[in-house]
């Protein structure tokens, strides 16, 4: 065994305590992002039915404390660093403000989370939306941060995106389906499969470029 091999073997006794230091990979704990400038055209609302979503990945989520976390999400089949912020107003809604078409501050947007990430060109992008959990008795409640992260981090987390030409795409795992022309009476229903998993998607056109997505393994959610 030569010196290099001895040296490597000795230092391989050292291991980073992953769980501890990954938790502290936090972002801008002290900076406040209480206002956002979101183009109304770019805003995409996603409604998640928490009881109905399938498999989740085991990626890490570093708790930033409070209502902000750094996570690794799957966008377009690619693992991507993103920041998730959850806002809960007095009524359970959020106080996110976004720019109107004239770049003036608009009124609070009815959303419960904002996801911020950088796309493959390094451009910062945001997605906003809200979600509800259905209790066993049928009542609904806003999702918690843990639930949002759990849902969003799933490799199969559904995502609806509207491009600059107005085309609407539903992403699920590595599938991308152009659903622009598949709406009837403001709703698009389609079934996708991934391995043994079958998911029924209901996408509702909520107007102003926003779409609500529900996913169920048991059938379409109306």
């Amino acid at each position: 065994m030569n010196n290099r091999e001895r040296y490597k073997r000795a230092f391989q006794a050292l291991h980073a305590p992953n769980n501890e230091w990954l938790e502290a990979v936090n972002m801008d704990r002290n900076s406040q992002h209480t206002r956002f400038s979101l183009s109304r055209r770019a805003a995409v609302a996603v409604m998640i039915a928490v009881l109905l979503v399938g498999s989740l990945s085991a990626a890490y989520a570093a708790d930033l404390g409070g209502f902000r976390r750094m996570v690794t999400l799957w966008f377009h089949g690619q693992a991507t660093d993103a920041r998730v912020e959850v806002y809960t107003g007095e009524d359970g809604g959020v106080d996110v403000e976004y720019a109107s078409e004239g770049d003036e501050e608009g009124s609070p947007a009815p959303a419960s989370y904002v996801v911020t990430w950088k796309d493959e060109n390094g451009e910062e992008r945001q997605m906003m939306g809200g979600g509800v959990a259905m209790e066993a008795d049928g009542t609904e409640r806003p999702l918690t941060m843990d639930e949002y992260v759990e849902e969003l981090m799933g490799a199969g987390a559904e995502l609806v995106e509207v491009n600059d030409e107005g085309r609407v795409t539903l992403y699920w795992y590595d599938q991308a389906v152009d659903i622009t022309d598949r709406f009837e009476d403001g709703a698009c229903r389609l079934t996708l499969t991934h391995g043994d998993e079958t998911m029924y998607f209901t996408v509702i056109d909520a107007g102003d470029g926003a779409y609500n997505v529900s996913a169920s393994e048991d059938g379409y959610v109306d």
């Binding site: 980073a16 992953n18 693992a79 660093d81 950088k118």
Partner: peptide, 23 residues
Amino acid sequence: MRRPVSVLAERWGDSLYRAAFAV
């Protein structure tokens, strides 16, 4: 190109820790 932090942490976390500790 860029890689997600989680990928870097998994791939080089121990290596960075060892280098930092050596210093």
